[in-house]
Design a protein around this nucleic acid. Structure first.
Lengths: 208, 208
DNA sequence: ATACAGACTGACTCATCATTCAGTAAGAGT
DNA sequence: ACTCTTACTGAATGATGAGTCAGTCTGTAT
């Protein structure tokens, strides 16, 4: 049996837990599922995480951190506020099977009755909103966007995307990537008083 | 012990089940919770519903039917398309504690892995979208709205409201009723090319 | 009144899991 | 090489909760 540092093992377990949550759903995952997928004993999971509840929370926290890292990486790019905004939103938007979204929908449900989880998800959402609001304000400073309240605009835009994600993940409705892009661009253009063409410099065609 | 007709008892149980789901969450409700809240034996629940899974599905179906009934009642009102549209949307929109929304968020999570439930929720959503799209088209016919595709517009509007509901119910973010109304009106006005003032004839003030 | 369908219950059974714990052994540090 | 920390396991334990079933009782129909 390979022995890993506690640190390394924890990360490995968290990753597998997320996979299992995606497959079976938050409440249906059993510790045994995670353990046997990793070929370790269930006791190992408890050894590192104390309780199942804790494991699940840590897993979502981990996923949130990963997402935020990616978001900040996008924001650090040396491009215009416009293209950073759109890059972030298009990454946030549900696409394809939207596998990433399943976790969050599960999380929403659990967070309604768990204060700790609620905090994890709310913090994640707050950070997203902040970051989006900040690029919007950059754009405003540059004179390319015009908006009443950047944070409110960010809230509305991400809410729309959340709602569309529900339609894809829960109602199995399939939106073509270009349709989603178009709706997003149309909405953002309206919110920020820009021309839609200025948001999507490349034609919809070159992203099949 | 009072004995009821199967029909009456079923309805009673479904109602209590919904209450319990709201309180404890879909997956956490135990048959015993429902039974003891009604002062009957757990076996009675199984007697009427066979399995717990079935009970939960029936409960959500019941809630969906109640909601659709109310929606159709609104649509049967003898008023302009505009005011019926807004009445329906304002009723759909999350307000206050948005207690009604908790059930649907729970439902979303469960429906991702349960085809039957997914169908129940998708049908509900489809009907909502249809009904909204239909009033929009009435408005178009009357020359008060202008829109590319009424169904798409309805999808976007309800998606936005779903997303806002998540923020209220999951992230405990409180939107003032007037803010929500204003955002909704602004969005609808834009989607349907109407003036916002034409959507909310009464000032925001007279609905505290 | 009497019979009967069927609503209802108590007291099980049985499976499922999280969690515990006493013990094993790998590998880092000396 | 030796030690000692600590990652890890196997085999229990115990709680929980869905579902079963044989039988009871009540409202209704005749």
């Amino acid at each position: 049996m390979k022995r890993l540092s506690a640190q390394a093992r924890r990360v490995e377990v968290l990753g597998e837990t997320l996979t299992q949550i995606r497959e079976k759903g938050m409440t249906a995952v059993r510790i045994t599922d995670v353990a046997s997928a990793m070929d370790v004993s269930p006791a190992l999971i408890i050894y590192h995480f104390e309780t199942k509840e804790n494991l699940l929370i840590e897993a979502l926290r981990h996923a949130a951190e990963r997402d935020l890292l990616k978001l900040h990486r996008i924001m650090r790019e040396d491009t215009s506020p416009t293209s950073r905004l759109m890059a972030a939103l298009e990454w946030y938007a549900p696409t394809g099977q939207a596998r990433g979204w399943q976790i969050w929908v599960d999380g929403w449900s659990a967070a309604m009755r768990d204060a700790t989880l609620s905090k994890v998800l709310s913090d994640l959402q707050d950070q997203w909103t902040d970051v989006i609001a900040r690029v919007i304000e950059e754009g405003v400073a540059d004179g390319v966007f015009r908006v009443d309240d950047a944070r409110d605009a960010a809230t509305r835009i991400t809410s729309l995307l959340d709602g569309l994600a529900v339609r894809m993940v829960v109602h199995k409705k399939e939106f073509k990537r270009e349709v989603l892009r178009a709706w997003l661009a149309r909405h953002v253009a309206w919110e920020l008083s820009v021309r839609e063409g200025d948001l999507l410099p490349y034609s919809a065609a070159n992203r099949s």
